[in-house]
């Protein structure tokens, strides 16, 4: 197992990582470019970060995106968790297979179709398109991701835990919040994070569902690069990458810490 790496492994690893991370690396480097031209290096500077925070259009879009992501992730987490509980706990009920299939459908549905059908729905129902239509659209497609994540955790959840709570005098409803929810909380939070990031970087569905005053950051970036990539965009993206990286590192450190504590069992 502990062989030295052959030249083949080294090469494929290098190419693989380069393929994945070189574009991001270039983007980060050029976000510190002093020149207005994206492809010409004009010396190190942080001026674009300064200008970015002056750019009201981008800042508004960022604020809208954060709000949409927060609200939609929260509601999707609640609904997705409920769906997961029904699927795992209720056993076989009429229409379970159909319900199960419908939960997973948005995972494989092309985004264009989801977006278009939502747009048709909103138009047909006479919804004014804006913040809430984007939120609803994002709930629709991120809920199933939450359901999948929570469902996989619930399957391994020892149901006798909830029975024990009831046995000790805790009514069924309360025992869910006292026992089950705290135990599956990591999965629920992971589902929330997933829904949040999905909402954060969604362009296709949001552009179908959006309306005046609800331009999200991906839509803003996309419309701006059609006019030419500005170094400001690089700066925005760098900040986004930093945020996401921070989130991932925190999450993995937290889970590592938990595993370390679990291993420190005293006999």
């Amino acid at each position: 197992m502990n062989q030295r790496m052959s030249w083949f492994n080294v090469t494929s690893l290098t190419f693989g990582f380069a393929f994945l991370y070189l574009p991001i690396l270039i983007l980060i480097i050029y976000s510190f470019n002093d020149s207005r031209l994206v492809t010409v290096w004009g010396g190190f500077s942080t001026r674009w970060y300064g200008e970015l925070f002056q750019n009201e259009g981008i800042m508004d879009a960022a604020w809208v995106t954060a709000r949409v992501a927060f609200v939609s992730a929260t509601i999707a987490t609640i609904l997705g968790t409920m769906a997961a509980i029904v699927l795992v706990r209720l056993g076989r009920f009429r229409g379970r297979t159909l319900f199960n299939g419908m939960i997973y459908a948005p995972l494989v549905m092309p985004e264009v179709i989801t977006g278009l059908s939502l747009l048709l729905l909103f138009v047909a129902m006479g919804f004014a398109r804006g913040f809430w239509t984007v939120v609803i659209a994002h709930i629709t497609f991120s809920m199933c991701y939450v359901a999948v994540v929570v469902q996989s955790r619930l399957i391994t959840f020892d149901e006798s835990l909830e029975e024990a709570a009831q046995d000790l005098g805790c009514p069924p409803g309360r025992s869910f919040f006292a026992i089950t929810l705290p135990v599956i909380l990591p999965a629920v939070l992971a589902g929330w994070m997933l829904a949040f990031t999905l909402s954060l970087d969604d362009l296709v569905i949001a552009s179908f569902a959006t309306g005046p005053g609800a331009t999200t950051l991906p839509i803003k970036i996309y419309s701006q690069i059609r006019l030419g990539v500005t170094p400001e965009i690089n700066a925005v993206c760098t900040i986004l990458i930093a945020l996401v990286a921070l989130g991932i590192i925190t999450a993995s450190l937290a889970s590592k810490h938990r595993m370390m504590r679990a291993r420190r069992t005293v006999g």
Binding site: S160, L161, E163, A164, A165, Q166, G169, S175, I179, V183
Partner: peptide, 20 residues
């Protein structure tokens, strides 16, 4: 009578200790 109102307690095979 539902389980939570019975004056009977059970020790589960898996112990069912609340991990949190």
């Amino acid at each position: 009578i539902p389980p939570h109102r019975r004056p009977v307690n059970m020790m589960f095979q898996s112990y069912a200790l609340f991990p949190h």
